[in-house]
């Protein structure tokens, strides 16, 4: 076979593959984006103690998340999006479109960053949902923590992981674990930021007055538990300037 045949063969092959792949990617992209958006919405709603399914996540999100807020490093609200009127009150960035991971990276690199927040309002319950993001044993862990109106007591929390060890670290996405966070406080009585962290061997190991800042760690999942504790402390720590305003 001649070289020109090989060249023609390769060229046709490359063009064909490129066309097939890019059209598949273009057709499937909206579905993929929708999946990502739905799983993000479910995470936020579950932190507010709701049980959305893949189908009703979008309407539920639009009903209960009244406002999306974006803050700057000084804790100023630079953008507020009102869900009911679907309009910006100030600014022009939706918190939902902010990628927390990228913003945390920008912060670590000393660049300017913004942070997302979600306001949940339901009859007599108002919660401030703060997304968190960190690293477990095998990969990323993430979640949302909902604070009550005193901006101190946790009203609900939910965590997720991609590939922690099943039965051990993977337990962080179970309700028994995240339900422990309800009623815990992130500030002490003097208003100092303490955070809430999983305690190896159980909360009982802490002195009486500290127990409000701890939950039971997962036995056998120490590294994931520690990663989760660091995640809450690190990310919530950045929001402190806004929470204490």
């Amino acid at each position: 076979m001649s070289n020109s045949y090989i060249f023609r063969y390769a060229a046709i092959m490359v063009i064909l593959v490129a066309v097939i792949l890019s059209s598949a990617a273009m057709i499937l992209k909206p579905l993929q984006d929708k999946n990502i958006a739905i799983s993000k919405m479910r995470g936020i709603l579950e932190a507010c103690n709701l049980q959305p399914t893949a189908e009703d996540a979008v309407p539920m999100y639009e009903t209960y998340i009244a406002r999306e807020v974006v803050i700057d490093p000084r804790g100023e609200e630079i953008s507020i999006y009102d869900m009911k009127s679907k309009q910006f009150i100030t600014g022009n960035t939706r918190a939902f479109d902010v990628n927390l991971k990228i913003q945390l990276k920008r912060k670590a690199a000393g660049e300017d960053y913004i942070l997302p927040l979600y306001m949940y309002i339901n009859q007599n319950d108002t919660l401030l949902v703060i997304p968190v993001q960190g690293r477990g044993l095998w990969g990323p862990i993430y979640g949302n923590i909902a604070l009550k109106t005193d901006r101190n007591t946790i009203g609900g929390a939910r965590f997720f992981h991609d590939k922690e060890t099943p039965g051990l670290g993977a337990e962080i996405d179970q309700h028994w674990f995240s339900d422990q966070f309800k009623g815990k406080q992130i500030f002490d009585e003097n208003g100092k930021f303490i955070s809430v962290r999983p305690i190896k061997g159980g909360v009982g190991k802490l002195p009486e007055n500290q127990r409000i800042h701890g939950v039971d760690a997962i036995s056998g999942g120490t590294i994931t538990s520690n990663g989760l504790g660091n995640m809450i402390e690190d990310v919530m720590g950045i929001y402190v300037v806004y929470l204490t305003k």
């Binding site: 063969y9 092959m13 598949a24």
Partner: peptide, 26 residues
Amino acid sequence: PPRIRIIVQLTVVAALVILVDQVLKA
């Protein structure tokens, strides 16, 4: 063409795997 046989095979396989990956993600 026998000389680029392996590359052709790899390309076919890689393209199919990308399709599967895209479908799974969707």
